[in-house]
Amino acid sequence: MIEFPVIVTAVVSSFLLGLLAMGFTLQYITLSVPNLAYGTIAFFTTYVTLTVTLLGLPPYVALPFAFLLAGSISFLLYKFMAFLRNRGMPLTALMISTLVFDFVIGAIMNIYADYISYTMKVFARMFSLTENDFSVSLPGGLHMPGILPVSMLASILIVLIFHTALVKTKFGIAMRAVMENYSMAGVQGINTERVLGFSWFFVGGIAGIAGSLYPMWFFMDPTVGTVMFVSIFASCVVGGLKSMYGSLVGGIVIGFSETFVTYGLVGVFGTWLWIYKSITPMLIAAISLMVMPQGFGGLVSRLKER
């Protein structure tokens, strides 16, 4: 019998991971290099949620602030990258340059955590906000934590809005055009810088929302961004390296797998399995590479061509 908290863990982590993976893939497609600072930028917004609760407000108030903050930082990162790219910097060096933001934002996050711990006398280097969440009573005596519907709803809404914009609006179609062929779009007079700048802002903001929801169920510490980066990357591999919606699916796969390896199988096979939690994402990614190198996204396009 799978316990209810395990289900919550599986669902919440899958949806959040799906959002994060989708965002990462989009940034990769538009910039041609992976954003190494992605994990840090996404998860430092957890401290926004913490701050909000320390101020006595309901935690979900943090969402718009998290969106704006993470979005702005992503926008700045994009501007920095674009500046370097226009100077002719090679791709590997561009990838290294994302580290500037990883270092600085990570340091600021740690400094803030220290500062909060010192001034507010709370242990901000390891915290969870499950107690600040609202709860819904379900039949059967179960109490559903608010994060469950919130994370599902937020993810579904975000994906719907995103998809609609990409398909139905001129700007969204321009985003797809720029993603596919940057130079051709420029020649046609599309303001590629503005299009990309906005998409990075939006995607960064989404990542920020996903991150800010994390401590509502899980334990947060400053290293979570780095650890989750592995799962995010594994989700992208499973989803197909250049497919946004594939990554979304990949995130759900990895989220469920991680949860069931750690909680489900451990209950069945014994606690010795617990230590393999950390290698589960990469194991799945490696298997996925061998079995279906194009990922889910590739599978779907091949099916469509038939």
Partner: peptide, 18 residues
């Protein structure tokens, strides 16, 4: 490299007349 392969014809025209 003269069209957006992943966009349909109508979207390509829309982009051409952006």
């Amino acid at each position: 490299e003269n069209t957006y392969l992943n966009l349909n014809v109508r979207e390509n025209l829309l982009m051409a007349g952006y």
